[in-house]
């Protein structure tokens, strides 16, 4: 699976570890990264590290920050990984994890979930994520079937159907939000990418989907390379193009839907991280896929740490930070490398 030089993998893994330590260290109470490292090492079975830190750190690190950091890292990995796959399958540099309706479908699901559970919200913690997940998967099923032409699903039709269904779902959720005069804050904060649940429950709930999705994405590097010749060429090279496309879109959408359901809609990571990796390390998908996954989790962790710092002790939805910081950075890179056509 590891193609080419191993060095970028090492750098990005080191970056991920630093981002993880930083994310757990920073907050209302600053916990020195040294202590964080020891607290994390103490989790390893059989370790003999004495718990000589203040007792309040236990709750803050083990129950609040660590599960949050892992949720964010998984989300970043999921978004960047599926973004790479979408860009590869559609051979379109603008493709991102939300292209064929994952975000708007999930948004509609979440808004429906919120408006139907109100006013009894006692046990509704899970209704939003589950409704969002169902909304996303239903939207993709509808889009994929609408885009079918005979026995094939042409890429252009798929994107067009996705955009149209997205617009439909978005306006439907806007309408529902306008009609309900309560509980808008929660829906809004979710739509901007706020993780509205805490603790380990959301991590455990999303892990199986993201793990299966990422594993299939990781195996797809070679296939994506072949697809870059164009669909006809790939077919002639012996690739069952239609089946491969369906599997790849399904895997990427499942991964995104799981991440979106629990972490909210976070823009830009899935678009720019694959481009960043492509800018710096070339277009070979066998490297692009695993490196984007690594870089995506670090990028989102850093953005989330920033989001929790700027207005401390309150936090900004991370989706705002990824777009505000990501867009200018991306444009700067684009201008800098405009002489070389990298795509």
């Amino acid at each position: 699976m590891i193609a080419g030089s191993i060095r970028p993998y090492l750098y990005l893994t080191a970056l991920l570890i630093i981002a993880l330590l930083l994310s757990v260290a920073v907050g209302v109470v600053f916990i020195p990264p040294g202590i964080v490292a020891r607290m994390l090492a103490a989790l390893v079975p059989g370790s003999t590290i004495p718990a000589d830190w203040p007792q309040s750190f236990d709750a803050i690190v083990y129950q609040i920050r660590l599960p949050h950091a892992i949720l964010i890292a998984l989300t970043g990995a999921a978004l960047a990984g599926s973004g790479t796959v979408y860009q590869g399958v559609f051979r379109n540099p603008l493709a991102d994890p939300y292209l064929i309706g994952v975000a708007s479908g999930a948004g509609l699901g979440a808004v429906i979930g919120l408006s139907t559970t109100w006013p009894t919200r006692g046990n509704s913690l899970y209704t939003v994520p589950i409704a969002a997940f169902i909304g996303a998967m239903l939207t993709i099923a509808i889009v994929y079937n609408l885009a079918r032409v005979g026995r094939t699903v042409p890429t252009t039709t798929l994107i067009l159907a996705g955009v149209a269904v997205s617009a439909f779902a978005t306006s439907l959720s806007s309408f529902l939000m306008l009609r309900s005069n309560e509980e808008l804050r929660r829906a809004f904060s979710w739509l901007l990418g706020g993780a509205i649940m805490g603790g380990w429950a959301p991590v455990i709930a999303m892990l199986p989907y993201v793990a299966v999705g990422l594993a299939s994405i990781l195996l797809s590097g070679h296939t994506l390379n072949v697809l870059q010749f164009g669909e006809e060429q790939a077919q002639q090279l012996g690739l069952p193009v239609e089946r491969v496309k369906l599997l790849l879109v399904l895997a990427a959408s499942l991964t995104t839907a799981a991440a979106v359901a629990f972490a909210g809609i976070i823009g830009f990571i899935g678009l720019i991280v694959p481009h960043l990796v492509r800018f710096s390390l070339g277009p070979d998908y066998r490297r692009l896929v695993p490196l984007s996954i690594l870089a995506g989790s670090s990028a989102l962790l850093l953005a989330d740490t920033l989001a929790r710092m700027v207005l401390s002790p309150q936090s900004v939805p991370v989706g705002i930070v990824t777009a505000l910081a990501g867009a200018p950075f991306f444009l700067w890179l684009l201008r800098r490398s405009k002489d070389q056509a990298y795509w």
Partner: peptide, 17 residues
């Protein structure tokens, strides 16, 4: 107005500290 009970608070992650 929201039906939040003391038991719910104890179940929130980290609040038992």
């Amino acid at each position: 107005w929201g039906g939040i009970k003391p038991e719910d608070v104890a179940e929130r992650p980290g609040w038992d500290a």
